[in-house]
Computed example of a mutant assay.
Amino acid sequence: MSATTAPTGHRWTPTWLFAARRGPGCCTMWAPDLQWINGRWYIYFSAEASPGQGERRTSVLESNTTDPYGAYTYRGILNLEPNGGWAIDGSVVRFNGRPNHFVYSAFRGGEQGLFIAPMSSPTQVSRNGVRISSPNLSWERQGGAVNEGPYALYHDGKTFLTYSASSCNTPDYKLGQLTWTGGDPMSAGSWTKKSSPIFQRSDANGVYGPGHHSFVQSPDGSEMWVVYHANSSTSQGCGTTRTTRAQKIGWNSDGSPNMGVPVRTGVSIAGPSGDS
Protein backbone atom coordinates (compact mmCIF):
# COMPACT_ATOMS: atom_id res chain seq x y z
CA MET A 1 0.00 0.00 0.00
CA SER A 2 1.32 3.40 -0.88
CA ALA A 3 1.92 6.39 1.33
CA THR A 4 0.68 9.86 0.50
CA THR A 5 2.70 13.00 1.06
CA ALA A 6 1.85 15.12 4.08
CA PRO A 7 3.37 18.50 5.04
CA THR A 8 5.67 17.05 7.72
CA GLY A 9 6.42 13.65 6.23
CA HIS A 10 4.17 10.83 5.06
CA ARG A 11 0.73 9.63 5.99
CA TRP A 12 -0.37 6.03 5.50
CA THR A 13 -4.09 5.24 5.36
CA PRO A 14 -5.36 1.67 4.83
CA THR A 15 -8.63 1.58 2.90
CA TRP A 16 -9.86 -1.50 4.77
CA LEU A 17 -10.21 0.49 7.98
CA PHE A 18 -13.18 2.36 6.63
CA ALA A 19 -14.94 -0.83 5.60
CA ALA A 20 -14.32 -2.29 9.06
CA ARG A 21 -15.67 0.65 11.07
CA ARG A 22 -18.49 -0.21 13.42
CA GLY A 23 -20.06 3.25 13.46
CA PRO A 24 -19.36 6.77 14.69
CA GLY A 25 -16.46 7.05 17.09
CA CYS A 26 -15.01 3.63 16.27
CA CYS A 27 -11.40 3.09 17.13
CA THR A 28 -9.92 2.67 13.60
CA MET A 29 -6.15 2.95 14.34
CA TRP A 30 -4.42 3.56 17.68
CA ALA A 31 -1.47 2.68 19.94
CA PRO A 32 1.41 3.22 17.46
CA ASP A 33 4.84 2.01 18.59
CA LEU A 34 7.94 3.15 16.68
CA GLN A 35 11.00 0.87 16.83
CA TRP A 36 14.46 0.93 15.19
CA ILE A 37 15.47 -2.64 14.27
CA ASN A 38 18.26 -3.79 11.95
CA GLY A 39 18.57 -0.51 10.10
CA ARG A 40 14.88 0.15 9.50
CA TRP A 41 12.04 1.83 11.36
CA TYR A 42 8.95 -0.21 12.21
CA ILE A 43 5.57 1.06 13.35
CA TYR A 44 3.36 -1.44 15.15
CA PHE A 45 -0.24 -0.32 15.55
CA SER A 46 -3.66 -1.58 16.61
CA ALA A 47 -6.54 -1.38 14.14
CA GLU A 48 -9.91 -2.71 13.18
CA ALA A 49 -8.83 -5.60 10.99
CA SER A 50 -9.72 -6.21 7.37
CA PRO A 51 -13.14 -7.86 6.96
CA GLY A 52 -12.84 -11.60 7.51
CA GLN A 53 -9.55 -11.30 9.42
CA GLY A 54 -10.90 -10.87 12.92
CA GLU A 55 -11.23 -7.74 15.02
CA ARG A 56 -8.76 -5.34 16.62
CA ARG A 57 -5.45 -6.85 15.69
CA THR A 58 -1.87 -5.60 15.42
CA SER A 59 -0.26 -4.65 12.11
CA VAL A 60 3.22 -3.45 11.18
CA LEU A 61 4.70 -0.91 8.75
CA GLU A 62 8.35 -0.98 7.62
CA SER A 63 10.23 2.15 6.57
CA ASN A 64 11.54 2.18 3.01
CA THR A 65 14.71 4.00 4.10
CA THR A 66 16.46 5.01 7.33
CA ASP A 67 14.36 8.19 7.45
CA PRO A 68 11.59 7.84 10.06
CA TYR A 69 9.65 10.62 8.28
CA GLY A 70 9.81 8.89 4.89
CA ALA A 71 7.52 6.39 3.19
CA TYR A 72 6.54 3.06 4.77
CA THR A 73 5.37 -0.27 3.37
CA TYR A 74 2.57 -2.25 4.99
CA ARG A 75 3.87 -5.69 6.07
CA GLY A 76 0.66 -7.24 7.34
CA ILE A 77 -0.96 -8.45 10.55
CA LEU A 78 1.04 -10.24 13.25
CA ASN A 79 -0.29 -13.73 13.97
CA LEU A 80 -0.41 -13.25 17.74
CA GLU A 81 -3.60 -15.02 18.86
CA PRO A 82 -5.14 -18.35 17.86
CA ASN A 83 -7.76 -18.08 15.10
CA GLY A 84 -6.98 -14.43 14.42
CA GLY A 85 -8.07 -13.36 17.88
CA TRP A 86 -8.19 -9.86 19.39
CA ALA A 87 -4.64 -8.57 20.07
CA ILE A 88 -3.81 -4.90 20.68
CA ASP A 89 -1.36 -2.40 22.19
CA GLY A 90 1.74 -4.24 21.04
CA SER A 91 5.39 -3.28 21.37
CA VAL A 92 8.84 -4.87 21.10
CA VAL A 93 10.88 -5.98 24.11
CA ARG A 94 14.58 -6.85 23.82
CA PHE A 95 16.62 -9.33 25.87
CA ASN A 96 20.41 -9.58 25.78
CA GLY A 97 21.48 -12.62 23.82
CA ARG A 98 17.91 -13.57 22.90
CA PRO A 99 15.65 -12.84 19.94
CA ASN A 100 13.30 -9.89 20.21
CA HIS A 101 9.86 -10.61 21.62
CA PHE A 102 6.51 -8.93 21.09
CA VAL A 103 4.29 -8.02 24.05
CA TYR A 104 0.62 -7.17 23.71
CA SER A 105 -2.81 -7.33 25.34
CA ALA A 106 -5.46 -9.93 24.55
CA PHE A 107 -8.60 -11.63 25.85
CA ARG A 108 -8.48 -15.29 26.78
CA GLY A 109 -10.93 -16.91 29.11
CA GLY A 110 -12.90 -13.67 29.33
CA GLU A 111 -9.97 -11.80 30.91
CA GLN A 112 -7.74 -9.12 29.37
CA GLY A 113 -4.11 -9.84 30.19
CA LEU A 114 -0.57 -9.40 28.89
CA PHE A 115 0.96 -11.86 26.45
CA ILE A 116 4.38 -12.34 24.85
CA ALA A 117 5.46 -14.00 21.59
CA PRO A 118 8.94 -14.62 20.10
CA MET A 119 9.74 -12.72 16.90
CA SER A 120 11.30 -14.48 13.91
CA SER A 121 11.72 -11.13 12.16
CA PRO A 122 10.62 -7.52 12.78
CA THR A 123 7.40 -8.28 10.86
CA GLN A 124 6.55 -11.79 12.10
CA VAL A 125 6.22 -13.83 15.26
CA SER A 126 7.17 -17.52 15.27
CA ARG A 127 4.25 -18.67 17.43
CA ASN A 128 1.17 -17.42 19.24
CA GLY A 129 1.75 -15.60 22.50
CA VAL A 130 1.55 -16.92 26.05
CA ARG A 131 0.13 -15.11 29.07
CA ILE A 132 2.56 -13.50 31.51
CA SER A 133 0.19 -11.31 33.53
CA SER A 134 -3.46 -11.26 34.55
CA PRO A 135 -5.32 -8.44 36.36
CA ASN A 136 -5.41 -10.31 39.67
CA LEU A 137 -4.84 -7.39 42.05
CA SER A 138 -7.63 -5.11 43.25
CA TRP A 139 -6.05 -1.96 41.76
CA GLU A 140 -5.99 -3.66 38.33
CA ARG A 141 -9.74 -4.31 38.37
CA GLN A 142 -11.35 -0.90 38.91
CA GLY A 143 -14.18 -0.51 36.41
CA GLY A 144 -12.99 -3.70 34.70
CA ALA A 145 -10.20 -6.27 34.99
CA VAL A 146 -7.58 -4.94 32.56
CA ASN A 147 -3.88 -5.32 31.76
CA GLU A 148 -2.94 -3.53 28.51
CA GLY A 149 -0.44 -1.16 26.86
CA PRO A 150 2.79 -3.03 27.79
CA TYR A 151 6.03 -1.10 27.21
CA ALA A 152 9.59 -2.11 28.06
CA LEU A 153 12.03 0.00 30.05
CA TYR A 154 15.71 -0.89 30.54
CA HIS A 155 17.87 0.42 33.36
CA ASP A 156 20.81 -0.68 35.49
CA GLY A 157 21.02 -4.01 33.66
CA LYS A 158 17.36 -4.82 34.33
CA THR A 159 14.33 -5.19 32.08
CA PHE A 160 11.02 -3.80 33.27
CA LEU A 161 7.69 -4.24 31.53
CA THR A 162 5.33 -1.43 32.47
CA TYR A 163 1.64 -1.57 31.58
CA SER A 164 -1.77 0.06 32.04
CA ALA A 165 -4.28 -1.41 34.48
CA SER A 166 -8.01 -1.04 35.24
CA SER A 167 -10.53 0.44 32.84
CA CYS A 168 -9.59 3.56 30.89
CA ASN A 169 -13.19 4.66 31.36
CA THR A 170 -12.41 5.36 35.01
CA PRO A 171 -10.16 7.92 36.72
CA ASP A 172 -8.34 4.93 38.22
CA TYR A 173 -6.62 3.87 35.00
CA LYS A 174 -2.97 3.60 36.08
CA LEU A 175 0.43 1.98 35.48
CA GLY A 176 1.82 -1.25 36.88
CA GLN A 177 5.18 -3.00 36.51
CA LEU A 178 6.60 -6.44 35.82
CA THR A 179 10.30 -7.22 36.27
CA TRP A 180 12.08 -9.87 34.23
CA THR A 181 13.99 -12.09 36.65
CA GLY A 182 15.93 -14.05 34.03
CA GLY A 183 15.12 -17.32 32.35
CA ASP A 184 12.69 -17.88 29.51
CA PRO A 185 10.70 -14.67 28.84
CA MET A 186 7.87 -16.90 27.58
CA SER A 187 7.40 -18.27 31.10
CA ALA A 188 5.17 -16.33 33.49
CA GLY A 189 7.50 -17.51 36.25
CA SER A 190 10.28 -15.34 34.77
CA TRP A 191 8.32 -12.19 35.63
CA THR A 192 7.57 -10.63 39.02
CA LYS A 193 4.68 -8.21 39.41
CA LYS A 194 5.03 -5.20 41.69
CA SER A 195 2.25 -5.35 44.26
CA SER A 196 1.33 -1.67 44.01
CA PRO A 197 0.87 0.70 41.04
CA ILE A 198 3.82 2.84 39.96
CA PHE A 199 1.85 5.80 38.52
CA GLN A 200 -1.74 6.79 39.23
CA ARG A 201 -4.27 9.59 39.62
CA SER A 202 -3.42 12.72 41.57
CA ASP A 203 -6.52 14.44 42.90
CA ALA A 204 -4.35 17.24 44.29
CA ASN A 205 -3.00 17.97 40.81
CA GLY A 206 -6.24 17.32 38.94
CA VAL A 207 -4.83 14.42 36.93
CA TYR A 208 -7.02 11.36 36.38
CA GLY A 209 -6.52 8.08 34.56
CA PRO A 210 -2.84 8.48 33.61
CA GLY A 211 -1.92 5.56 31.37
CA HIS A 212 -0.95 4.05 28.03
CA HIS A 213 2.54 5.40 28.03
CA SER A 214 5.99 5.10 26.51
CA PHE A 215 9.48 6.18 27.54
CA VAL A 216 11.95 8.41 25.71
CA GLN A 217 15.46 9.63 26.54
CA SER A 218 16.38 13.30 26.63
CA PRO A 219 18.44 14.49 23.65
CA ASP A 220 21.71 14.15 25.59
CA GLY A 221 20.77 10.71 26.97
CA SER A 222 21.04 11.75 30.61
CA GLU A 223 17.33 11.68 31.46
CA MET A 224 14.37 9.38 30.96
CA TRP A 225 10.91 10.82 30.34
CA VAL A 226 7.49 9.18 30.40
CA VAL A 227 4.93 10.19 27.78
CA TYR A 228 1.33 9.30 28.62
CA HIS A 229 -2.26 10.44 28.31
CA ALA A 230 -4.61 11.52 31.09
CA ASN A 231 -7.78 13.47 31.83
CA SER A 232 -8.42 16.57 33.92
CA SER A 233 -11.77 15.43 35.32
CA THR A 234 -13.04 12.27 37.01
CA SER A 235 -16.01 12.17 34.64
CA GLN A 236 -13.89 11.86 31.48
CA GLY A 237 -13.04 8.44 30.11
CA CYS A 238 -11.54 6.84 27.02
CA GLY A 239 -12.53 9.54 24.57
CA THR A 240 -11.01 12.61 22.99
CA THR A 241 -10.80 14.52 26.29
CA ARG A 242 -7.48 12.82 27.02
CA THR A 243 -4.37 14.87 26.39
CA THR A 244 -0.75 13.87 25.84
CA ARG A 245 1.61 14.71 28.69
CA ALA A 246 5.30 14.19 29.47
CA GLN A 247 7.54 14.49 32.52
CA LYS A 248 10.95 13.33 33.74
CA ILE A 249 11.16 10.20 35.90
CA GLY A 250 13.70 9.07 38.49
CA TRP A 251 15.06 5.73 39.68
CA ASN A 252 14.65 3.73 42.88
CA SER A 253 17.58 2.12 44.71
CA ASP A 254 16.81 -1.26 43.09
CA GLY A 255 17.07 0.28 39.60
CA SER A 256 13.32 0.33 38.99
CA PRO A 257 11.57 3.47 37.69
CA ASN A 258 10.38 6.07 40.18
CA MET A 259 7.57 7.73 38.26
CA GLY A 260 6.72 10.36 40.82
CA VAL A 261 3.33 12.09 40.72
CA PRO A 262 1.62 13.22 37.50
CA VAL A 263 2.11 16.95 37.05
CA ARG A 264 -0.84 19.34 36.82
CA THR A 265 -1.43 20.84 33.38
CA GLY A 266 -0.42 24.47 33.04
CA VAL A 267 2.63 24.06 35.28
CA SER A 268 5.98 25.00 33.71
CA ILE A 269 8.70 22.38 34.09
CA ALA A 270 12.28 22.30 32.82
CA GLY A 271 12.58 20.76 29.36
CA PRO A 272 14.55 17.59 28.61
CA SER A 273 18.30 17.93 29.11
CA GLY A 274 20.07 18.81 25.88
CA ASP A 275 16.94 20.20 24.23
CA SER A 276 17.75 23.54 22.63
Rank of each mutant, 00 (worst) to 15 (best):
W41H: 15
S138P: 08
N64A: 09
G157S: 14
V263I: 15
M1V: 10
R11E: 07
H229C: 07
P150E: 06
S2K: 13
S268A: 11
P197L: 12
V92Q: 01
I116A: 06
R75F: 06
Q236A: 13
G143F: 03
S121Y: 03
C238N: 05
G144L: 08
T58Q: 11
V60I: 13
G149H: 05
G157M: 13
G266D: 10
V92D: 02
G189S: 15
S235R: 12
P32H: 09
G23M: 03
G157C: 10
S196D: 15
T13C: 04
A230N: 08
A117K: 01
R22V: 02
H155E: 08
V267M: 09
Y69I: 12
S46Q: 01
S134A: 11
V130P: 00
A204F: 09
R141V: 01
S256Q: 10
Q112F: 02
G183K: 09
G9H: 12
G206L: 14
G84E: 01
G182D: 11
L78R: 01
W36R: 13
A49F: 02
T28R: 03
E223T: 01
Y104F: 15
N231I: 03
T5R: 13
S214R: 11
M186V: 05
S218L: 07
S46V: 06
W86G: 04
S233Q: 14
G110A: 10
N128D: 12
D254S: 07
G110H: 07
G209H: 04
P99Q: 10
G85N: 11
G84D: 08
H10K: 14
S91E: 05
G25V: 01
G113D: 07
Q142C: 06
W41C: 00
W86D: 14
S167N: 12
V263S: 05
Y104N: 00
A20W: 02
A230F: 08
P82G: 03
S214Q: 12
R57I: 04
T73G: 14
Q124V: 07
T15D: 15
I132D: 04
N64I: 03
F160V: 06
G9Y: 09
A246M: 15
V267I: 15
T181R: 11
T15S: 15
G129Y: 00
G143I: 03
P262A: 09
G52R: 05
S50C: 11
I249D: 05
G129E: 00
A246L: 14
G189K: 14
S59G: 13
S121P: 00
S2M: 09
N96I: 09
G97R: 04
Q236D: 14
K174I: 03
P197A: 15
H213S: 12
A3K: 04
T66R: 13
V93H: 00
R98E: 11
S253N: 13
S273R: 01
G52K: 06
I249A: 07
R141E: 11
G110N: 14
S233Y: 10
F95V: 08
I249T: 07
W225G: 00
D89R: 00
S202G: 09
C168D: 03
V125K: 00
P262I: 08
F102I: 08
S273A: 10
A31K: 04
I269F: 01
M119A: 10
F107L: 11
H213I: 04
P122W: 08
L137N: 02
V216M: 12
A188Y: 03
P262E: 11
R242M: 02
D275T: 15
P24G: 05
N258I: 01
N128T: 15
G255I: 06
E223Y: 04
R131A: 12
I77S: 04
